[in-house]
Amino acid sequence: MTSALLYSMAGLALFAIGFFGVVVASHVMRKILALNVMGVGIFMFLIALAKRNPLVVDPLPHALVLTGIVIAVAGTALALNLMVRIHHMDQSSQEQSK
């Protein structure tokens, strides 16, 4: 069992944990964190696959993952902003109904 195979299995397991969290978690912030854990799993799978031949490291998945990390943080920021807005809307509507 090579280390690349080990890491790709770990990436799949992280993806599974994140997917489970997205479906099951109660709070929106936990869902966002779970999406990020899913992302880490996918990045790990891609980078591990780039190293399946122990002699050659394929730089193309590395570039894709580099792009993906920046996009992931942008998406996280957008989701967190929406979460904060929804939270404040909920709060103000609760205060009005009191």
Binding site: F43, K51, H62
Partner: peptide, 24 residues
């Protein structure tokens, strides 16, 4: 770093751990 992707390691340490943590 273990998998030989040093560019991604730098970006992950700065963005994935730093900026995302600050945002969260």
């Amino acid at each position: 770093g273990q998998l030989g992707a040093f560019d991604v390691a730098i970006a992950e340490a700065a963005i994935g751990a730093g900026i995302t943590g600050a945002l969260l």
